[in-house]
Design a protein around this nucleic acid. Structure first.
Length: 412
DNA sequence: TCTGGGGTCCTAGGACCC
DNA sequence: TCTGGGGTCCTAGGACCC
């Protein structure tokens, strides 16, 4: 049995990242109550000043305007966020080789051993990273150092904003007694409810249970969390950048909820168009498609379809979805959201390869879409769309639609 | 928080095989 | 013949994340 040396894992987390970038772009905003998300109609990110006066994530923009007239409301600028994100991670890479970009404003890095090669303590390395991001990018971040990823996440959240927290193997208790179990990365609402019923309220309560009890009551991922919280390094840093999607999804909610079949189908059609456009942009073709309806009460009903011949033409997918629609639709239910997911994506070069084996993979539509995509590249998006989506497009609220590919915004 | 959009991963259970 | 044990593969759906 090999004894693994204790690791030092860094977790870096942007402070109110989207707003932070807006302030970096325009320093006049510093110290003010600022939110982003105007284009979406709900607050995506908010400055600490906005938070202090009572604005919360997800709050409708109209409510912000009404109740907090002094708050500055900005549309999201995803391109800038991506740019700053990359520059932030590059600064971390000045010190660490193994950096995992976990999300737009978060990364993990393995600092193990750098103490010696850089002749600095781990704390000094973290301080340097913080200072350089501060000085060069005008951004504030929080850092956690710990022997595992899960503990590093606890640490980076422990002091925020602009925090630096170090958790060591023998002082975890200090940090875990005060951490509610639902705050642990990987423990969601379902698991935390189940744990609470069993009397477990804090992360410390959780790791005080013995392993057999955990195994008896929970699944593998929960066991991994238990071990990581006890300082056992299991979740590895994965420095490989995500190259490809394994699924592409488009969903859209609407108000009021409805059981109008034609409307729902047109919503689906619009989502299919969007998802297919994204797939074509990344040269991917799905072998499977699933779609769902979400009811007013947030009940899902879904259906998935295996594509005999993979295709990213919306016409093809549309007609398949239409055929299956009645399997998920009930006249008596009012729906609030429709969505479609393209799954089992393969590069279109591979799909083209299949062409020679069996019957035609590329349908007559794929040629047309190539040309439309090229046109839209020159003259702008949403120039051309399917008649079947028309209903959905005319019904959309004015001016809410922005660049499709740039709209994968998160809450931060 | 009467709740937005886009992802990933795991698991239970059925189908099928020997 | 009336029934054992074990394996793989696939799928739907749950749970979680930012």
């Amino acid at each position: 049995m090999t004894v693994k040396r204790t690791k030092t894992i860094l977790h870096m987390d942007g402070d109110a990242f989207f707003v932070g970038v807006e302030v970096a772009k325009n320093p006049k905003l510093r110290g003010k109550s600022v939110v982003t998300g105007e284009e979406r109609g709900i607050v995506s990110a908010l400055s600490y000043e906005a938070k202090a006066i009572g604005v919360v994530r997800g709050m409708p923009i109209f409510k912000v305007k009404k109740d907090f007239p002094n708050v500055i409301i900005l549309p999201g600028d995803y391109a800038s966020y991506v740019k700053y994100s990359g520059m932030m991670f590059d600064i971390v890479r000045r010190y660490a080789d193994d950096v995992e970009e976990y999300s737009i404003d978060e990364c993990f890095a393995d600092l193990t051993g750098l103490e010696r090669t850089l002749k600095m303590t781990y704390k000094e390395i973290a301080e340097r990273i913080k200072k350089e991001i501060n000085d060069e990018l005008d951004l504030s971040i929080s850092i956690g150092l710990a022997p595992t990823k899960v503990l590093a996440k606890v640490a980076s959240k422990y002091v925020k904003p602009n925090g630096l927290t170090i958790i060591e193997k023998d002082n975890t208790k200090e940090f875990l007694v005060g951490t509610p179990i639902e705050k642990i990365w990987g423990i969601g609402p379902k698991t935390s409810e189940s744990l609470k019923i069993k009397g477990i309220k804090t992360a410390q309560d959780f790791i005080d249970k013995d392993i057999d009890w955990i195994k008896r009551n929970y699944s593998k991922p929960i066991e991994v969390l238990w071990r990581e919280l006890r300082g056992e390094y299991l979740m590895e840093i994965d420095p490989n950048p995500k190259t490809e999607y394994s699924s592409i999804q488009k969903t859209q909610s609407f108000h009021p909820a409805t059981n109008d079949k034609v409307f729902l189908l047109s919503q689906l059609s619009k989502n299919i168009e969007g998802a297919c456009a994204k797939a074509r942009y990344y040269h991917l073709i799905p072998k499977k498609v699933s779609f769902f309806l979400k009811s007013q009460n947030f009940q899902f009903s879904a259906c998935s379809i295996k594509l005999h011949t993979p295709s990213n033409s919306p016409e093809i997918i549309n007609s398949l979805v239409e055929k299956k629609f009645t399997e998920v639709y009930k006249r008596t239910i009012l729906y609030r959201t429709t969505g479609v997911t393209l799954e089992e994506l393969i590069p279109d070069s591979v799909a083209q390869g299949d062409l020679f084996g069996s019957n035609a993979v590329s349908d007559k539509f794929s040629v047309i879409h190539k040309q439309i995509d090229a046109l839209e590249e020159r003259f702008g998006k949403n120039m051309v769309y399917l008649a079947s989506s028309n209903n959905a497009r005319n019904n959309k609220k004015k001016g809410t639609e922005s660049d499709d590919l740039d709209r994968d915004l998160l809450f931060l």
